[in-house]
């Protein structure tokens, strides 16, 4: 599944627009899981594409321009998080409202609130793997971690989410 989605290669002559149309939506949705807000994620991803646009002559020669853009967007989110900007406040607000026994699983906001309880690294690993559909090796490159560390984060994150899901389902009538 992952391989099928993510092998959109950067062919010679690809423009920023081509990459944008191929990757923007998935990248925004993945980072929205991390940031807790699609608006914040879109802002970070757009800024990364703006930088790519401005330095395209250099970046197009990279082995993985999309990986570069992804890392820039992740760094932007991380910087915003450190500054305690609106992204963090959005996550904190959702987190305060979240209770596993009241989660509505069809509601994206509720799930986001639940995800906010996961450590950031776990959230990012799961978002890149399950939402953007990256293979583990690319998740590792994006997070600057080893593949083993990514697998550890995926294990931990999935187990915690599964536990919460099981609790919520047991409480269903």
């Amino acid at each position: 599944m992952n391989e099928a989605i993510t092998t959109i290669s950067v062919a010679a002559g690809d423009s920023v627009e081509t990459l944008f149309r191929a990757h923007y939506a998935r990248l925004v949705r993945a980072l929205a899981v991390v940031a807790g807000s699609q608006e914040a994620a879109a802002d970070a991803v757009q800024e990364a594409f703006v930088k790519a646009h401005l330095h395209w002559r250099r970046i197009q020669r990279y082995d993985d321009p999309v990986g570069w853009i992804r890392r820039v967007a992740i760094n932007k989110l991380r910087d915003d998080h450190r500054r305690g900007g609106r992204k963090e406040r959005a996550v904190e607000r959702l987190k305060a409202d979240a209770r596993p026994d009241q989660i509505e699983w069809s509601n994206g906001q509720d799930v986001t609130a639940l995800l906010a309880e996961l450590p950031r690294q776990q959230r990012l690993a799961m978002a890149l793997f399950y939402v953007e559909g990256l293979p583990i090796v690319e998740v590792a490159a994006a997070m600057k971690l080893s593949e083993g560390a990514v697998k550890f984060h995926l294990h931990q994150g999935r187990d915690r989410l599964r536990g919460v899901v099981a609790i919520s389902q047991e409480q269903l009538p």
Binding site: F20, R29, Q38, Q46, Y130, V131
Partner: peptide, 24 residues
């Protein structure tokens, strides 16, 4: 790690697909 349920859960958290034309 492939897990359809996790994909659906996290996909819901990711929200709707944004409008690419407007964003571009």
């Amino acid at each position: 790690f492939d897990d359809d349920r996790m994909e659906r859960l996290l996909g819901a958290a990711g929200g709707a697909f944004p409008d690419v034309n407007t964003a571009y």
